[in-house]
């Protein structure tokens, strides 16, 4: 049960800390606009235009294209498109690394579904069960291989590319080696002891059913332990950029929300202008609110 306990704790820590991060960023006050074009929800302005190109723009309706955003986000998330365009050398490692992680997440999800189906009483030899398990094998096996390749590639780049090496810290190598160990133990357990991932699924089942589990090979045990520890460690690192990227894009780069009279934005502006600042430079009276210092006559 020690292994299961580790997995439960890891999952809980992950959830709580990631959620805390989301709340932290979501609760930050309204900031000044700092958008960067192109903004993909600007309908028909893929070249980078904005509503400011319209004469009397404030009299025109707001037209936002959700499809435009989705068309940007899917290739960015799945294929790391930005890196493909702007840093091809890095992309050759970054893409397999990220895609490997996505496949492993998919593998875990399929094991979870397979375990649920199993708990629900469907027999082991059944088209649905077989399909889910076969898919899990593809996701897991390909994920471990592709992820390992990407991970090794990133390690090589961090070590041998002088642009990256001069900025690399011990923790960067530690993180990559940690992830590589997860991929490799997963690969080892698949090839040596769990070719159909049925033992892995049984472990998932034991987690769902709070039941004991036996029969995990040393490689699978190592894989589960490492994965659990990583899930626990991840929220404390900058690898939570999957959270950050929502905010950097949606609430900074693409935030072109207009401040119209009587709008919700205007109410939020009113609130932040009442914050009392304590900057120390001679031209700012420390202790006054932003509204006061912005409207006082300078001497």
């Amino acid at each position: 049960m020690l292994l299961q306990l580790l997995s439960y704790v890891a999952f809980m820590v992950f959830l709580v800390v990631v959620l805390a991060k989301v709340v932290k960023y979501a609760r930050m006050p309204l900031h000044l606009r700092w958008e960067l074009y192109p903004i993909p929800h600007e309908k028909g302005r893929e070249y980078g235009g904005s509503y400011f190109e319209e004469l009397d723009w404030w009299k025109k309706p707001v037209e936002k294209s959700l499809i435009g955003e989705i068309k940007f986000m899917i290739p960015e998330i799945l294929f790391v498109r930005g890196v493909y365009h702007d840093n091809r050398k890095l992309w050759y490692a970054s893409f397999p690394f990220h895609f490997g992680i996505y496949l492993v997440i998919g593998w875990l999800a399929l094991l979870f579904v397979g375990a649920l189906v199993n708990i629900a009483g469907l027999p082991s030899v059944n088209p649905i069960t077989t399909f889910i398990q076969s898919l899990a094998v593809i996701f897991g096996a390909v994920g471990f291989v592709v992820g390992s390749i990407g991970c090794l590639g990133l390690l090589m780049l961090r070590t041998f590319d002088r642009n990256l090496r001069h900025f690399a810290a011990p923790k960067d190598y530690f993180n990559l080696l940690f992830i590589l160990a997860i991929f490799l133990t997963g690969l080892l357990s698949w090839t040596s002891s769990d070719p159909s991932f049925e033992v892995s699924r049984d472990y998932m089942k034991s987690l769902i059913a709070f039941s004991p589990m036996t029969g995990a090979s040393p490689s699978l045990t190592a894989h589960i332990a490492l994965l659990s520890l990583f899930i626990m460690y991840l929220p404390f690192t900058q690898m939570t950029h999957f959270v950050a990227k929502y905010f950097t894009w949606h609430t900074v780069r693409w935030d072109d929300e207009r401040n119209m009279r009587g709008s919700a934005i205007e109410a939020r502006v009113g609130k932040v202008l009442n914050y009392k600042q304590n900057w120390s430079a001679p031209h700012i009276k420390s202790g006054d609110s932003w509204a006061t210092i912005a409207t006082e006559e300078v001497e």
Partner: peptide, 26 residues
């Protein structure tokens, strides 16, 4: 937030999440 509500969120994100990938240099 009191001193820098104006850029707190973008700055916090920028300080926390650079991957040092150097894509921006060129």
């Amino acid at each position: 937030k009191e001193n820098n509500w104006t850029f707190l969120q973008p700055l916090s994100l920028t300080l926390e999440y650079c991957a040092k990938c150097q894509t921006c240099n060129d």
